[in-house]
Each structure stands twice: as C-alpha cells, then as structure tokens.
Design a protein around this nucleic acid. Structure first.
Lengths: 217, 217
DNA sequence: AGGTTCAGTTAGAGGCTATCACGACGAGGT
DNA sequence: ACCTCGTCGTGATAGCCTCTAACTGAACCT
C-alpha cells in the first residue's frame, strides 16, 4: 500500500504526461488560438496516437478548462507576488503586473477574458480564484485616499456588495476596483486584439495615462 | 445584353440565397458562437446539401469575414442614425446606442471586438468602416468643453494623430475619444462575457457611472 | 505466480471543410 | 423552336477532427 503523501511511479508518470500535454496545448493556443487546439496534433507531437490522450483528459473541453484554471491561477499568483514582494497592495504596481502578464501571452489572457462560448459555464473553483484576484484589487483600492462625496453608483454598490465577499473596503473603494478592472481590461483587450496597430500612438502611454487618471481624483 | 443598373433573375436569386445563408449563419453565431458556425448545418437548414454553399462563398472564412463586415457596417449605421436623428454628435447618446447595439446581439459585438484569431487579418474595408466609426466619436468629443491643462498623453497623441485621419479635433478630444472607446468597451466586454453575473450590482448603472465620470472633467 | 489495473494501440462512427466531376435546368442568341 | 452555354445542385471523395470500443501488453500488488 502506498503511504499517504508519497507518490507511486505510476502517479508520477501520469502527472508528467498530463503536464506535457498541457504544455503542448499551451504552445498551440499561444500560436494559433484556443479554437485551433487539436488533441490529435498534441498526441502526434508526443509520439502517441490520438485516443491515448483520453486516458489523461476526458476530452477537449476538460483540457481547455484546465488551461483556463491555470491561467486564473497564474494571474492570482502574479498579483500575490507583487503584493508580497513589493510595497504591499499598490494599485499601480498591480496594473503594470497585469499588463506585463497579459502581454507575455495574449491568448492566455483571452482564455479568461476573451469571447465567451455561449454554452460553456466556468467551474466553481475558477470563480473562487477570480474572487481571490478581486480581493487583491479591493485591498489596493482600500489603501487609496477616499474621494470627496459618494457618487450615485457608490450608493448602489453599497447596497450590492455581496460580491466583495465581506471585504471591509468602503463603497468608494469597491467602485474604484470595478473601474480599475473595466478600464484596464478595456485597454488591454483592444491592444492585445490588435485594434491599436496602425494607429501610431503608444499603447503603453495610453495605459499609464488611464491609470494615472484613475488614481488621481 | 443586360443594361447596367438592372439585375438579371439569376443575380437576384443568387443575392437572395446569399442573404439567406448569412441569415442562418447569424442565427448560429448568436446562439452558439462563431466557432460553432457550420456550413454543413446551414446547408441542411436550407434544404440543400453541403458543397452547394461553395457556389456562394469561397469557404467558411469568407462567410465569417462577410459577417464581420456587416457587423462593422451595422455599428457605423447605428452611430450614423443617432447623430442624424438625435441632437447631433452627442457622446452620451453614442454611448447608450453602443450599449444597446451590443446587448441586442453580444456575439455580433464579439465578432468585432472579441478574441482575435492569430492568423486572421481583417480586410481593408473593415478598417475603413472602423475609422468611420472613430470619426463619429471624434466629432462628439470635439463638441465637448476642453479640459484644463493638456496632459502628457495629450502631447503624445498630438504627435501621433495620423490615425485621426485629418480630423480637426484638438488633442484632448483625441485622448477623450480613446478613453471613451476603451472604457465603454471594457465594461461592455466584461458584461457581455458574463463576468458580472452573480456579482449583484447593475451593469447599466456602472456603465452610466463610468460615462458620467468620462464626461465630467 | 497469478490476477488486476492501467497505458497505449487499432478500428470505426460521425462530424466538419473543401474539391471534383457529373447531371439538370434555365437564360440567351440564332 | 432550337441549341448552346453558364450556372446551380448533386454525390463521391480526401483529409481533418473528436470520441468510443475492443484489444494487447506491461507494470504492479499480493
């Protein structure tokens, strides 16, 4: 009997093959997009034939779901190291970390924030990681000086702060977190999709301009 | 000989079948996403068998490209009627028209602004329509009162205003147009993708709050 | 040593895009 | 009225894909 905490050779082998499959899948997605991901092609790269992969994943959907989960995890970890190793919960630092993370692998970003496929519903644990990410944002927003008077949306979000999951941030901070999220995503999404190419201006400068404007008032 | 300007019965028939194919394609995309678009399924719906569709479109890619073109055209026309029938170039009116247009068919919005497929490059005429859309935004931004002092990004965009295609708007207006685009897209994209579902707050109120903030200073 | 578990194989069903060669039919010219 | 030619739609076929099922062989455990 295998003792708890140890891994049998079979388990180690299985884990390693699973990891290798995911690695190839990541490469495919990075170069050709998630819609072009082919289990057959991955199997061929690994020197085995098609159906063998179904020993490791129940199907194409589970593989993609796993990659989505990893993407969420990676972003949450990135924020985590920024907060831990940097100067605490700094919204500007999180913003630049987010941008770097997105530019490092655009298709990974779109795995999370890209076009949704109508039928698909994300598993529960990804939403858990999403709220972990949101907590980093809320922490950073709570550190900022509060604005002058509470706006109409501040009052609205105060009545619907369930999504903040008990975070003690004041309503203006909740509002600012949502603003941060949507504004950074707006620029990044358009930039990564190439909608700025050929326009001539520097997307990085637009990003920091928007960030400064968000932090200013 | 057919006179120029008239249409032969064959041409009319051809145009009608093309339109019907596109109609079914729109339905499929709206309900299952662009990745699920199947020429075979469309042919079956029209009562003909597979390869017949290749008389009307050179392939799946051309059909999708055509739908993207139509989506751009539809958005430009929507902005056009807002400007023409409404109170001129009103940024808030454009914003709400954009939101209504996006909510009416989310997958059509993602056809334009969704996850890009790495190989694909949009044809030239769509970028022409895109700049037509941008012109509506610039017109509206030029009408607004100018902000106090020009920001750093205002100066940057002043040096790279080629994309504005000779539009006489001041740099602050160019900046505001970019801000408008990215901020509205940020909210709409996340809302349409379902990232707000379960969070409890009202996306419409967030949208108007962001819009007010954008118009305020 | 023997039974069990599991990885990987081939075969095959059913879906898709796309090409090709063929029949059928309507439109136009004579 | 006839004939020709362009065009529409067909079935057959190749080559992808996902995924299932049955089978082989080796590693593992007792």
């Amino acid at each position: 009997m295998t003792e708890p905490g140890t891994t049998t050779p079979r388990e180690r082998y299985r884990a390693q093959v699973r990891a290798e499959i995911k690695e190839r899948a990541r490469e495919q997605i990075a170069t050709a997009g998630a819609s072009a991901l082919s289990l057959n092609a991955i199997a061929k790269q690994l020197g085995m034939s098609g159906p063998a992969l179904y020993r490791y994943f129940t199907g194409r959907d589970e593989l993609i779901t796993e990659l989505i989960r990893d993407a969420y995890r990676s972003l949450a970890d990135t924020f985590g190291t920024v907060v831990r190793s940097g100067s605490g919960a700094d919204l500007a630092a999180l913003a630049h970390a987010l941008r770097d993370w997105a530019l490092a692998d655009p298709q990974r970003y779109f795995l999370i924030y890209g076009t949704p496929v109508p039928g698909y519903h994300a598993p529960d644990d990804t939403t858990a990681i999403a709220s972990e990410i949101m907590t980093f944002l809320l922490d950073a927003c709570a550190e900022l000086p509060a604005a002058a008077a509470p706006s109409a949306f501040d009052r609205h979000v105060e009545e619907h702060r369930r999504w903040a999951d008990g975070h003690p941030a004041p309503p203006a901070a909740l509002h600012r977190a949502l603003s941060f999220w949507t504004r950074m995503h707006g620029i990044l999404s358009l930039e990564l999709a190439g909608h700025f190419t050929g326009m001539g201006f520097d997307a990085a400068q637009l990003f920091t301009a928007e960030l400064d404007d968000l932090l200013a008032p």
